[in-house]
């Protein structure tokens, strides 16, 4: 659906995007994740044919965004950052204006407006003036606009910014539902958002892609070195002896917890799940086991590790 090759965008003074390449397949929900100024909006503006790249090519549905901009624009629904709307218009009037602008016929636009208003939960505010609606509703109007002409690709620039938690949840659900019929590209710097909605994540930093994979895979990669925590009520020496016997345990640390419990932090060999072995041990010895967890890296840890400035020195 999207093929980006060697894309570079230079503004006077600084380079926003450097030699970027990625592809997005049909039906994927892809998240662009990065701190502010990483180049997310720049990529989206180029893909939506608002401005050209300095060098490199980008194609949407096989059409070049620079030379075949009209074809591309017909196939995308784009919601820019901060969701600009004509605040003096009424919801239905605005959607009609946008639908007609996108070339939908009279009957078709009426039909599509009914569908997207239903989809975005706008039916009860269809006669209200946009400027007087709450931010959540305004956001949904922006989404409805992006969907109204049934685009193949939907590009949403920070769709949940400035919403309250309930509204965020509703918008996320909506995006997830969209993924069943459309290809979706969203940008965000909120991590749980991509974790929950996206099938693939591109982590951007200073105009480069640092990592690209599914949220689960990223976690798997990062969880090498992740520890297993077990709280077991047993004498400390016996515990230590046991851990030394298990070959999969690379390293361990036993410290006192409340009462008789000891807190063991175990580092397994890469790719090994220690938990069943620990449970089996506790059952065999008759030791009470009250906690058994694996410390998982959240996407947040991944993000911080990947984007922090001293990364080069780490490697």
């Amino acid at each position: 659906m999207i093929e980006v090759e060697n894309l570079t965008k230079r503004y006077t003074g600084h380079t926003a995007v450097t030699g970027l390449s990625f592809t997005v397949g049909r039906g994927e929900i892809v998240g662009l994740l990065g701190p502010n100024g990483a180049g997310k909006s720049t990529i989206m503006r180029i893909l939506s044919c608002y401005m050209p790249a300095t060098s490199g090519t980008a194609r949407v549905a096989g059409y070049d965004v620079f030379t075949q901009a009209d074809e591309v624009r017909r196939r995308i629904g784009y919601m820019p950052e901060n969701n600009p709307l004509h605040r003096d218009m009424r919801v239905r009037e605005y959607l009609k204006f946008r639908a007609r602008l996108k070339g939908l016929g009279r009957a078709r636009s009426r039909e599509r407006i009914d569908v997207v208003m239903q989809q975005c939960g706008l039916t009860e505010v269809s006669r209200r003036i946009i400027g007087q609606l709450s931010k959540g509703f305004q956001q949904r109007v922006g989404l409805a606009d992006a969907l109204v002409h049934e685009p193949e690709l939907i590009i949403l620039d920070e769709p949940t910014i400035g919403l309250d938690p309930n509204q965020i949840r509703a918008v996320r659900q909506l995006i997830k539902d969209l993924g069943q019929k459309h290809t979706v590209l969203i940008s965000t710097h909120i991590l749980p958002e991509v974790e929950m909605t996206c099938s693939r994540v591109l982590i951007l930093h200073q105009g480069r892609i640092l990592a690209a994979d599914t949220p689960e895979n990223l976690q798997k990669i990062m969880s090498d070195g992740g520890q297993v925590i077990a709280e077991i009520a047993a004498p400390e020496e016996e515990l230590r002896a046991c851990w030394e016997e298990i070959p999969e345990v690379e390293d361990f640390d036993v410290s006192a917890a409340e009462g008789e419990y000891r807190r063991c932090a175990l580092t397994p060999r890469p790719g090994v799940d220690l938990r069943p072995a620990i449970f089996a041990l506790a059952r065999e010895r008759g030791w009470p086991l009250r906690e058994l967890t694996r410390s998982r890296y959240s996407l947040e840890d991944i993000f911080v590790r990947v984007t922090r400035p001293d990364k080069e020195e780490d490697n």
């Binding site: 503006r45 939506s48 044919c49 608002y50 009209d70 624009r73 017909r74 995308i76 784009y78 919601m79 820019p80 600009p84 709307l85 004509h86 946008r98 602008l101 996108k102 070339g103 606009d145």
Partner: peptide, 9 residues
């Protein structure tokens, strides 16, 4: 809104 306008066909 210029951006939304110019990204329509």
């Amino acid at each position: 809104t210029f951006e939304t306008l110019m990204t329509t066909p």
